[in-house]
């Protein structure tokens, strides 16, 4: 079940990943029978979310500490957009904690 992303944020967790393989600051995931290559940002998101998940606000704070302020918008809005893309690809899922 997917919860709409809002600024206040839902709980973010990993999607149904069959595997995740990291090389340097990038990675690949196997999800839904496809291998997707993840950027540095996406790789850090998957790392931060971890096995137990993370609230969107907490994720935004952590990304801010790692990458600094986003070039546009608030950290939470930028994080929500990144999460939305990864949810669309099945890499992440959102819902209640």
């Amino acid at each position: 079940m997917t919860t709409p992303l809002t600024a206040s944020g839902p709980w973010v967790r990993r999607g149904g990943l069959d595997d995740w393989y990291v090389v340097g600051d990038r990675s690949a995931v196997l999800v839904g029978g496809r291998v997707l290559l993840l950027s540095e940002l996406a790789t850090v998101v998957v790392e931060l979310v971890g096995e137990s998940g993370l609230g969107l606000d907490s994720l935004a704070d952590a990304l801010g500490k790692h990458f600094g302020a986003p070039p546009a918008g608030s950290p939470t809005e930028a994080t929500a957009e990144a999460v939305r893309v990864l949810v669309h690809e099945g890499v992440l899922a959102t819902g209640d904690r």
């Binding site: 069959d18 393989y21 990038r26 990675s27 196997l30 291998v35 290559l37």
Partner: peptide
Amino acid sequence: LDALAALAPETSSLARLSRPL
């Protein structure tokens, strides 16, 4: 990483393996 992406479509039942990547 590019190799994993290139090879995955040319595999069979990859996800059935343990830690396939």
